[in-house]
Simulated assay, not measured.
Amino acid sequence: MLKAVFLDRDGVINKASVIDGKPYPPRNLDELELIPGVDQAILQLRDRGYFCIVVTNQPDVARGKTSKETVESINQFLIRHLAIHEIISCYHDEHENCGCRKPKPGSLLKAALKYNIDLNKSFMVGDRWRDIEAGQNAGCKTFFIDYQYNEKQPQNPTYTVASLTDAVNIILNEAS
């Protein structure tokens, strides 16, 4: 079985716009800005045998604030420029109660089935409580990148870190 690192997109790989203490995704490809060091961190994971999969909630599509095409253009840019295997996007809003929207673990479980991933040897890295809870619900160790957002905080992440680079250093040290 493979081991994976699941990554949230906005706030983990690319910068999120923070307005009134809450994070928001880039509105288009022109606003996309990668967080420094992310490319190398993901490459290190792949070089050490980790499957790298982005799992992202994109409810602004259901809310009519952005188009699915815009989200997919950002995702395609990330796939072309980073060493990630796949991006799984949930376009549903909370009231739709779908299984793929974090904090539910559906996206992680789907990837585990598709790629034969051992979730107990895998990690979820995110910057919001939904990411951490999804990882916990799937059986992964979790890394919370704490940007001090003005919102609900996660309960008992395995680790709290300042960046994806910090998370990757811990993952790679644990694996040695």
Rank of each mutant, 00 (worst) to 15 (best):
M1R: 04
L7N: 05
V12P: 03
K15P: 06
A16C: 06
D20M: 07
D20I: 08
G21I: 14
K22E: 13
Y24H: 15
P25I: 11
R27N: 14
R27C: 05
I35R: 09
G37T: 11
G37A: 10
V38I: 13
A41I: 09
A41G: 10
Q44E: 09
D47G: 09
Y50E: 08
C52M: 03
V55D: 07
P59Y: 03
D60W: 09
G64R: 00
G64A: 09
T70G: 00
Q76I: 06
Q76D: 14
Q76V: 00
F77W: 15
F77R: 10
I79H: 06
I79V: 15
H81V: 15
H81L: 02
L82Q: 12
I84T: 08
H85S: 12
H85R: 04
H92M: 00
N97D: 14
C100F: 02
P105Y: 08
S107P: 00
L108S: 04
L109C: 05
L109F: 10
A112P: 04
L113V: 14
L113E: 15
K114C: 08
D118C: 06
L119H: 02
D127P: 12
D127Y: 14
R128F: 07
R128K: 12
W129C: 06
R130C: 10
D131H: 03
I132E: 04
I132W: 00
G135D: 07
A138D: 06
I145M: 09
D146R: 02
Q148F: 12
Q148L: 06
Y149A: 02
N156A: 14
P157F: 08
P157E: 13
P157V: 10
V161I: 11
A162W: 06
L164P: 10
T165H: 10
V168Y: 09
I171N: 06
S176P: 05
